[in-house]
Design a protein around this nucleic acid. Structure first.
Ligand code: ZN
Ligand code: ZN
Ligand code: ZN
Ligand code: ZN
Lengths: 165, 165
DNA sequence: GCCTTTTGTGTTATTATATAACATGTCGAT
DNA sequence: ATCGACATGTTATATAATAACACAAAAGGC
């Protein structure tokens, strides 16, 4: 079930053009090959599903679509594909939503932060390299050796602020 | 089940002294009363349980302890108490761990970041006001109106770095 | 090519996490 | 004493994630 507020014409900039989707898929292929990983049909299709989605998708939502297309029907099918994508930098896991979203910049390694709109459920990926550097320093001050971080902001996206109510 | 690496003498600075625990409970009482909320026995006991814990505790771990002491035995009992504590700034939810931890500075409103040690499972609360300001700016640049944020870092705490292996 | 090893796909079954809905109890204010 | 608001407890259910196993496809050595 997609959020109703998200139906009417609006779509995240990052995912709107089918051009950019094709480009991202292309990048994904390349990136996977470089890493010695195989972007198999299920995995590729899973990435497409995420790219086409407006917000982030739960594993079971992805599973539903995969199953409808003749892939496996059981949870591990979705979780495996999704975990593969996350591990290879092609998708991100949004912990607050128990959901996954396609990476918007799969062409390079990066730390990401996510802006989650409470009104329309859109999820926007923002560059967090700077933020992570600050976090890293704060951590180091505490003697903590940082490996990776989750940064998820909750609020209202521009479109929903502008909307009358 | 607590992590075995956490048994032997080491304990998070914030929670170690029973003095500081008493002090925090005192503060909690006050804070709750000021907010017009009641720190009832289950709620208070839940906070104590979190304070005594080394890492963060899952809701079902908390429930087990509550049940053993004659409180309710069903999930909502734990979830309600935990949500109360979170809503009133007396505890935090750690999404990456599906767990909860007592707030280390319940005396004032603050944004917190968490340093999660992968080796010993300790969770340290760090002040994130500065970080959140940076995040806020980044968000504003994207036209996003930030309400609250989750910042969770994963890595190794000082104790575990120093440990031989 | 053929065999072996590794990786991937699918299944069933189970575990873990969280909430809905409802009944009863407590407490303070009128 | 009665009322309303809140708190606690229950049963039942929803939602999310993994374990363990069977088989299939691909990669690599010969
Ligand atoms: Zn990304
Ligand atoms: Zn929005
Ligand atoms: Zn805190
Ligand atoms: Zn540690």
């Amino acid at each position: 079930m997609t959020s109703p507020t998200h139906q009417d014409g609006f779509c995240c900039a990052a995912h709107s053009g089918s051009d950019s989707m094709a480009a991202i898929l292309e990048t994904a292929e390349t990136r996977a090959r470089v890493q010695g990983a195989r972007l198999t049909p299920v995995r590729r299709r899973t990435l497409e599903i995420l790219l086409q989605a407006h917000g982030a998708l739960g594993a079971y939502e992805v599973l539903e679509k995969l199953a409808a297309e003749g892939y496996g029907t059981q949870p591990p099918v979705a979780y495996r594909a999704l975990n593969f994508l996350v591990e290879h930098g092609l998708a991100h896991r949004i912990r607050r939503l128990n959901a996954f979203t396609a990476c918007a910049q799969p062409d390079h390694d990066h730390r990401a932060a996510f802006l989650i709109c409470e009104t329309c459920n859109s999820v926007t990926e923002a560059d967090a390299d700077l933020l992570c550097r600050a976090l890293d320093q704060a951590a180091q001050a505490a003697g903590f050796q940082l490996d990776r971080a989750t940064i998820e902001a909750v609020g209202q996206c521009r479109a929903c602020q502008d909307a009358p109510e």
